[in-house]
């Protein structure tokens, strides 16, 4: 596991791309709430799909929380299931 991470970062370094930190951790991180559609909207694609964490850099734990929040918001018609 650690071996893999080392090699991966070694590969990445020439391109100068650092791993971004999770937007939901840190001191003044926003709280994930299904009512906050503006925030949730930042983590959905144009079509309304949930953005994968490998792109949004959300941690696994927060991604799970985020996905339930988005699904709740969809159920209450606060967010679309599909948006064209």
């Amino acid at each position: 596991m650690t071996q893999l991470e080392i090699t991966r970062s070694a590969v990445r370094r020439p391109f100068g791309r650092r791993r971004k930190s999770c937007p939901f951790s840190g001191p003044n991180a926003p709280k994930i709430d299904y009512k906050d559609t503006k925030l949730l909207g930042r983590f959905t694609s144009e079509r309304g799909k949930i953005v994968p964490s490998r792109i949004s850099a959300v941690s696994a734990k927060k991604q799970r929380e985020l996905s339930t929040a988005i699904k709740r918001a969809r159920f209450l018609a606060l967010m679309p299931y599909v948006d064209m």
Binding site: K35, R74, L76, A77, L78, M79, P80, Y81, D83
Partner: peptide, 18 residues
């Protein structure tokens, strides 16, 4: 009275109460 993201039972809007 908020507009719904999609139609529910032919409604485009709905009264939300929490």
């Amino acid at each position: 009275l908020r507009s719904l993201a999609y139609r529910i039972k032919k409604n485009r809007k709905g009264h939300y109460v929490m």
